[in-house]
Design a protein around this nucleic acid. Structure first.
Lengths: 125, 125
DNA sequence: AAATAAATTTAGAATAATTCTAAAAAGAGT
DNA sequence: ACTCTTTTTAGAATTATTCTAAATTTATTT
């Protein structure tokens, strides 16, 4: 692991939020000001391919990166905001239902986040 | 509903595969040769916002559109191919586990598709 | 049916996210 | 130190999607 790879792994794993590649880039730039975007994309892809980080795609928004610890996501249909939620682990149930092998699963629950709900009710007034 | 909106709805709902906006565009062009890309994007967004079609995002691949009939997806980690699979409906379980309201959920199972598995074993030879 | 208003479509430019390229730099192995 | 491999860099290129403003179509009013 190169210093960049290690640092990107750290950033993704310690961040509360779900960072986009661009946000990872800006965080990394604070530590290594000369780093380039391509390095961030390269390493995020590498870490993702190695199964060390999670990549979360939300319809209409750029991909975000997350730790691999088992959990699910709320997705706001309005603003795309991701919120963590830990639901029952589906692995045993999926193993029963699915014939072949699989790596992992991704469960997203669509809702409207608190912020967007506030905005909505404000506009109604 | 305009003729384009109706036709796009038809194309998305009758297609076996999971079409990208571009693929919808080419199919629509066979019927209305003068149609433009923007019309396709406009109408897909409209239909999606109205809850008439599903939009499926796959990490690293363009969004695809699908019918809203309840079902889940296999996602190939290599080529992004989507395959339908109908697993147990999670709605009752989610309602129990989740406090607030939600619209719908999206469950993706990551695996390596048959085609990619073939390619893999061929390269190994 | 003509006039007006509203919504939709069009082509092309613009933007955003990501990948590619080829050269430079860094690291590892003899 | 010298060679080989890997990683990084900057910027160009690509891809997916949205925006823009004019043209067209559709709906509404007279």
């Amino acid at each position: 692991m190169t210093k960049y790879e290690k640092q990107i792994y750290e950033i993704v794993n310690t961040s509360e939020s779900h960072l986009t590649a661009e946000q990872v880039f800006w965080k990394l730039k604070q530590i290594y000001p000369s780093v380039s975007q391509a390095t961030v994309y390269n390493n995020l892809n590498k870490l993702y391919a190695a199964g060390l980080i999670r990549r979360v795609s939300v319809e209409g928004f750029p991909d975000r990166y997350d730790c691999i610890a088992r959990h699910d996501h709320f997705v706001c249909r309005k603003c795309g905001r991701l919120t963590d939620i830990c639901l029952e682990d589906l692995t045993p149930s999926l193993k029963k239902q699915i014939d072949g092998e699989f790596f992992s699963y991704d469960l997203k629950i669509f809702h409207i986040c608190t912020e967007c709900r506030k905005k909505e009710s404000e506009t109604e007034k």
